[in-house]
Simulated assay, not measured.
Amino acid sequence: MQNLKQRSIGGRRLGAGRTSIGNDPVRTFRLSNKIIQNVDAWATSKRTSRSDAIRQLIELGLTLTASRNNSSSQRDRASQMAGTQLDSQADLTASAGDQASRKERLLKGPEEFRTARRDRKSAS
């Protein structure tokens, strides 16, 4: 008697409706036609569906962002290590200001190469 009461209260009959594909909720967002064309081309090259392609591309983008953040910390550590080495080899006869400006120039690198670096934001 308890089972009959539970079945009849609150909704659909047992087994009604589309079967569940996954546990993740559906997300809806807008994309331009050009982006959809690019996603479809990528999906075709990978032999996957559009929705799988979108998921994979988002995961790939998030992975790259995480690796960029990691490389930023590695870059900071390398700069700190280089600074320590430069301090140990500094010309002790030069003034403190001269030592600091020499160290800064060496750490930044030649001016003509600073704008060519893609991994650094421009100083302007």
Rank of each mutant, 00 (worst) to 15 (best):
M1S: 12
Q2M: 04
K5M: 05
Q6D: 13
R7K: 07
I9W: 09
I9Q: 14
G10I: 09
R12M: 10
R13A: 11
R13L: 13
L14K: 13
G15N: 09
A16R: 10
A16I: 07
S20A: 15
I21Y: 06
D24H: 08
D24R: 15
D24A: 14
D24C: 13
D24T: 09
R27H: 07
R27W: 03
F29L: 01
F29C: 04
R30T: 06
R30H: 12
S32G: 08
S32M: 04
S32W: 05
S32E: 10
N33Q: 09
K34G: 02
K34T: 10
I35M: 08
I35K: 11
I36K: 05
I36Y: 00
I36W: 02
I36S: 07
Q37L: 10
Q37K: 11
N38F: 07
N38K: 14
D40H: 04
W42C: 06
W42T: 03
A43I: 01
T44V: 09
T44F: 12
K46D: 08
R47Y: 06
R47V: 06
R47H: 11
R47T: 04
T48P: 02
T48C: 10
S49Y: 01
R50L: 09
A53M: 01
I54C: 00
R55P: 00
R55K: 15
R55I: 04
Q56N: 13
Q56D: 14
I58R: 08
E59C: 15
G61V: 02
L62R: 12
L62C: 14
T63Q: 14
T63P: 08
T65N: 15
S67C: 09
R68K: 15
R68N: 11
N70Y: 12
S71G: 07
S71L: 15
S72T: 13
S73F: 12
R75E: 15
R75C: 12
A78L: 14
A78S: 04
S79C: 10
Q80K: 10
Q80F: 09
Q80D: 12
M81W: 03
M81S: 06
M81N: 10
M81I: 06
A82S: 01
A82N: 05
T84R: 08
Q85A: 15
S88M: 15
S88L: 10
Q89D: 10
A90R: 04
A90P: 04
D91S: 00
D91A: 04
L92K: 01
L92W: 02
A96R: 03
A96M: 01
A96H: 02
G97R: 03
D98T: 03
A100K: 01
R102A: 00
R102S: 00
R102M: 00
E104M: 13
R105D: 02
L106D: 03
L106E: 01
L107D: 03
L107M: 01
K108H: 01
P110T: 00
P110Q: 03
P110D: 06
E112C: 05
E112V: 11
F113Q: 12
R114A: 01
T115Q: 10
A116N: 11
R117C: 09
R117S: 08
R118Y: 00
D119H: 09
R120M: 15
K121G: 11
S122R: 07
S122I: 13
A123S: 09
S124W: 05
S124G: 06
S124R: 10
